[in-house]
Design a protein around this nucleic acid. Structure first.
Lengths: 202, 202
DNA sequence: CCTCCTGATAGCAGCGACTGCCATCAGACT
DNA sequence: AGTCTGATGGCAGTCGCTGCTATCAGGAGG
């Protein structure tokens, strides 16, 4: 029984998150996850490259969504507005599943391995969005810059949002963060409208 | 012999990087590193929490340096200029040791575990710089925003610099990146000088 | 209905990362 | 010399993860 049942990866991911939430990441073994999903440990490591990865199973779809948002936007939308739209939509999705987001956040911040993988996943998301920007005609350096910056702003907004998710609006916090960042950047040496090259030393 | 010799962490770090460069990260065992530094595997894992960490032994000092740069700057320097100065100095240091930087870069980009730890270390650097900014009176959200953004710009600049380190100037690339980013951010909805709150949805 | 073929799974064996435990040892201190 | 303390060697064991092989479910063909 249990063998050949559909969606093995999904079952494993569900079992894993449940176990992680119940007894922590470290105290959950690969064999336990597999057993709860009705399969052998060996199959678990065939379906997922490592124990951390199963925790982030859902982000694959989220990343595809973000890329799709950028790709579907009209060509005349500025690159910064395109990434902002993609990330803002992710913000809304997260806010619609506040409970799940909080559980995941608690697990991630409690475990160094998950925190590292979380960083890595966000870097991957940024790279994917940058590529999507490039296909809309944005120059590669600017695309990377904007994508990674947007993700950084998102992470900080998310972190602060989790402190009080009920009374704060995540998409708004993200957009405000982008605005604040733009202001703070423009406040550099000589204020806004300075020439592109700012180098002084050397 | 070998026991009680000075600077055991430094010796381990040196031995580790040499072995990693010679035979790769995965094919180097903890026992080999320890043996080359003249000690037991058990001592290696007592001095470093894991095999990845020994590779980043040098960044501790680099991080302290960056924090010191920010702390030592006059109070009237804008926050963005303070982080920029810290990161720019790190750029110069790296450029003065181009060969070592390239070896390290090759190892990091060849191995997923090192890549993850590298991301993690840069996040730590950003957090440390943000804290240094806060102690200079910068508001925490802005400090975090600027620090993480600066680090992101640095990483992208570094990545592109490694493609041709001889004919490019890393500090200049970083500063240009910051400038490009500021322009691209300001190019959003309605151009520069737009009100701080940009929220639309909801 | 039986057979073959293919891809997924079970199950075992084994390596390496990492940890807890305890005996041991160098050097400082008295 | 005696003691005390912190660092080290060394053993045993768990767990993440992998290669290999036998086995199994289901589809294609007879």
């Amino acid at each position: 029984m249990g063998r050949w049942e559909p969606n093995p990866r999904g079952r494993l991911a569900k079992a894993a998150v449940e176990l992680f939430a119940a007894q922590g990441f470290d105290d959950t073994t690969g064999a336990q996850i597999a057993a709860r999903a009705g399969m052998h440990e060996r199959s678990f490591f065939r379906l997922f490259p490592d124990k951390r990865e199963v925790f982030f199973h859902a982000v694959e779809a989220a990343q595809r969504e973000a890329v799709a948002v950028i790709a579907d936007l009209p060509e005349d939308v500025a690159p910064i507005d395109a990434v902002a739209a993609a990330v803002a939509q992710r913000c809304e999705t997260i806010q619609q599943h506040t409970d799940a987001a909080l559980i995941r956040h608690e697990l991630v911040s409690a475990n160094a391995e998950l925190r590292e993988r979380d960083l890595s996943k966000h870097a991957e998301l940024a790279a994917a969005m940058a590529e999507a920007l490039c296909e809309r005609g944005t120059a590669e350096p600017v695309a990377q810059l904007l994508a990674h910056t947007a993700v950084a702003v998102f992470r900080l907004s998310f972190e602060r949002w989790t402190a009080d998710p009920e009374r704060q609006d995540l998409p708004a916090m993200f957009r405000d963060g982008l605005g604040e960042l733009a202001s703070a950047l423009a406040a550099g040496r000589g204020g806004p409208h300075r020439p592109k090259r700012v180098g002084k030393r050397q």
